[in-house]
Write a protein that binds this DNA or RNA. Structure first.
Lengths: 98, 98
DNA sequence: CTGACAAATAAGCATATACTTATATTAGTA
DNA sequence: TACTAATATAAGTATATGCTTATTTGTCAG
């Protein structure tokens, strides 16, 4: 039951934009903040939430902090959704049988 | 961009329990409420949220209302997560190359 | 038609949370 | 050492939302 943190984290649109911005390469906090209409502290707070959900990882490089996606959180979410998806399809098909 | 409603809907643990309870077969509102420590109105409100997110569908049967999973919402979510997952893996692999 | 049952809606409240500004921390630079 | 840059943390606020009770709407049984 670790996907609950990930689901809650991705429910926020600003955090989803952060994740999407990290899709292809790591970015520094300031760089992320520039594109987001929110202040730098807000971005740091969002990153902390994403970190706890294991959706991103941060490492210090000089005096900057580079964040990148952590596959772990996404993997758990995917697994959960795939299970639901499979069951939903089965139940849906069954609902036509009778 | 329809997965945002689904993400927000599934972020709530009570709503997730509702979805999980509907995994295998349709259920009536009262039946769902009995297993959930919340009142019937709360369940109805949650179901409304899930309906707007296209995660469930409800149909009237007599004076009861049977809800079942709607694959549509889950499909959108899955698609979104799969894209993120793929990109995350690529970026992760790339981060080892250099 | 009347009463009871099932679900949805209304209204209100209490808490969670996404934001802000201000400050602290840590690392590079002159 | 002092100064600046980059990020994190603290504290406070405003809004969103998940819950409750009370009421409304709709359906079946007698």
């Amino acid at each position: 039951m670790a996907y609950d943190l990930a689901m809650a984290a991705l429910a926020d649109p600003t955090r989803r934009r952060l994740v999407e911005r990290l899709r292809h390469r790591p970015r520094a906090v300031g760089e992320l903040a520039q594109h987001l209409r929110v202040t730098q502290p807000a971005v740091s707070q969002h990153l902390a939430v994403l970190r706890r959900a294991r959706l991103v990882r941060g490492r210090a490089v000089g005096r900057r902090r580079l964040y990148q996606l952590d596959p772990a959180g996404l993997a758990m979410l995917r697994q959960y959704l795939d299970r639901m998806w499979g069951d939903a399809l089965e139940a849906y098909a069954r609902s036509f049988e009778e």
